[in-house]
């Protein structure tokens, strides 16, 4: 005897786009009509898509959007030359997400350790500087190559333990970074 369970998975075309600053957009994409954003139908026309570029027309203005980078459901979109970061959720995952306790994130994981033995070539930031995830913090020469070591979180540069020209071993602490991510 078999038992079937019916669950409407893709019945929902409602998605939530969340900025890194916490701002949310509730976006409903009906199959045949204009998008509904925050419960309001917007007269936005999708004009064309080429490679990574999406062009829209709204209020008689053209908007060019470029997908700059993507990591799973996190995207960086460039509109009119300015980048906006969004984290995307389906309604389903969004609700679940709210339940997960965000406490207990490891701070020291964000400190920058030397990934290999080498020599520090250059420091790009100073103590107290703000740093974005993925932004290069310093350049490390190893294997005759300069490697840019990047931040693993958005944060503030704490103590810098090295100076240019200094040789470092693998796993040496190079720079302390304090996360400001929620």
């Amino acid at each position: 005897m078999g038992t079937s369970y019916v669950y409407k998975r893709d019945a929902s075309r409602l998605f939530i786009a969340m900025r890194e600053n916490g701002k949310r957009f509730k976006i409903y994409l009906p199959k045949e009509s204009k998008p509904v954003i925050d419960n309001e139908e917007k007269d936005i026309n999708f004009i064309e898509q080429s490679d990574y570029q999406y062009t829209f027309n709204w209020k008689d203005k053209r908007y060019n959007c470029e997908l700059v980078s993507r990591d799973q459901n996190k995207m960086v979109i460039k509109v009119n030359g300015v980048e906006y970061k969004f984290s995307l959720e389906s309604l389903f995952s969004y609700i679940r997400h709210g339940m997960i306790d965000k406490e207990g994130k490891q701070i020291d994981e964000n400190n920058i350790l030397s990934p290999m033995p080498g020599k520090i070539v250059d420091l790009f930031l100073a103590e107290g500087d703000l740093v974005n995830v993925g932004e290069p913090i310093l350049s490390l020469e190893a294997m005759k190559m300069q490697n840019e070591i990047t931040a693993t979180c958005n944060g503030v540069i704490g103590k810098i333990h090295v100076v240019p020209g200094q040789s470092v071993m693998k796993d040496d602490l190079l720079v302390e970074v304090t996360s400001i991510d929620v």
Binding site: Q72, N73, S90, S93, R96, H97
Partner: peptide
């Protein structure tokens, strides 16, 4: 693979 939530 690691994702933020079960659905994904």
């Amino acid at each position: 693979f690691v994702y933020d939530d079960e659905e994904h």
